[in-house]
Simulated assay, not measured.
Amino acid sequence: MEITYIGGPTALISLGGVRLLTDPTFDAPGEYPIGARKLVKTAGPALAATEVGAVDAVLLSHDQHPDNLDASGRTYLAGAPLTLSTASAYDRIGAPVRAVPSWEHVELPRPDGGLLRVTAVPAQHGPDGSEPIVGEVTGFALSGDGLPKVYVSGDNASLDVVRDIAGREGPFDVAVLFAGAARTPLVPDAPLTLTSEDAARAAGILGARHVVPLHFEHWGHFTQDGATLTKAFAEAGLTDRLHLLEPGASVRLP
């Protein structure tokens, strides 16, 4: 498989010949309103939407926040053959979004004649009880004969959720973890995504031999970054598992 980091939560995953795009965000830096607040984007994507090219599916953790789906991302969705996401995203966007409840799956054809299974898994975008405030979120587990098993967390902040996923779908070869310890006044007392320390703990829980962080930079509401990820994985003795990519860079994983 190969993962190309585009920026923020957006990455291109090629697995078994199937091309998947996570949370499309292609807008320029600036202020983006969400309710009465604004989120500040500090850097644009390393690749434009036109440079990404066609994909087989979009894995959309959620649609309600502009740092996970922006205006350019919505335009990209309109041309995508399939977007897998939450029931709430389907209610708001309609086609081409397909709602996949947690633990249910969709099978995508591979060029070699096999199938790539995409299983929706839970995600908790903040502390316990925060879903009515922040909204519904999903993650994904990717698997198939002869392929590494991959976990894509989406905006999940809960290690209990990670343990549940590891118990039902693990162990995983690769973990794509949304980190950054995001904080906003909406939920002032707890992070909305994994801290760097919890990302390292999640790697251990999942049994992941490779970890590719996403969504830890390029927005003002992140409180941790690549340096804190590097430190946390080093302190956990997991430096060899961490693949901290520069925007536009790719990594091939066994």
Rank of each mutant, 00 (worst) to 15 (best):
A95M: 11
V134F: 00
P247Y: 10
P254Y: 13
T42G: 13
L229Q: 02
H243I: 09
L69N: 00
G126C: 02
A11G: 06
E136L: 07
P33E: 05
L229A: 06
A166V: 05
E169M: 10
Y151R: 05
P109I: 06
P191L: 12
K38H: 11
A236K: 07
L69K: 03
V52A: 15
L82N: 05
D173W: 08
A190T: 04
S158A: 13
E131W: 06
H125Q: 14
I6F: 02
V161L: 06
P148E: 03
P66T: 04
G167D: 10
A78E: 15
Y5T: 06
G30V: 03
L108Y: 09
R209D: 11
A199F: 05
D164L: 11
F222V: 09
R74H: 08
G73W: 03
Q224F: 05
L229M: 07
L47Y: 13
V176K: 04
R168T: 04
L186Q: 11
P33F: 10
V176T: 08
P132L: 13
A99M: 12
V251N: 03
A46S: 09
P9F: 08
R19H: 14
L84V: 13
A141S: 15
H65D: 10
A54P: 07
G126S: 03
L142Q: 07
F140G: 02
Y76E: 05
T86F: 04
G237Q: 05
A200K: 00
R74P: 04
S158D: 12
L82K: 04
F222I: 11
E217K: 14
A166E: 01
P111E: 10
